[in-house]
Computed example of a mutant assay.
Amino acid sequence: MLTTMTVLIALVCVLLMGAVLIQNPKGGGVDSTFGGTQANQMFGAAKSTDFIEKATWYLAIALFVLCIVTSMMVGGTEGAIEQLQSQ
Rank of each mutant, 00 (worst) to 15 (best):
V12K: 01
K47Q: 03
F34H: 03
T33P: 00
V14M: 07
M42F: 14
Q87P: 13
T6Y: 07
G76Q: 06
L11N: 02
W57G: 07
M17Q: 03
A45H: 06
V74A: 11
T49D: 12
G76L: 05
L2H: 12
I68W: 05
E53I: 10
Q41P: 08
G27S: 06
E53M: 11
Q23N: 09
S48Y: 11
I68Q: 08
V74Q: 12
L15T: 01
G29R: 00
G36L: 00
I61N: 05
I52G: 02
G75S: 04
T4A: 13
V74M: 11
G29P: 02
N40W: 07
G44P: 11
Q83V: 12
G44A: 01
Q85V: 14
A46Q: 09
T49N: 06
L15C: 10
T77A: 10
S48V: 15
G36P: 00
Q85T: 14
Q85K: 13
D50I: 15
V7F: 07
L66Q: 00
F43V: 02
L63T: 05
T49I: 05
T37G: 07
T6Q: 13
D31T: 05
L21N: 03
C67T: 14
P25R: 00
L2V: 15
L16W: 02
D50F: 12
L84E: 15
A19Y: 04
T4Y: 05
A46Y: 02
T3Q: 09
S86Y: 08
M72N: 09
S48E: 13
I52P: 04
M72H: 01
V74N: 08
M5D: 09
K26R: 04
L15K: 01
A45S: 08
C13H: 03
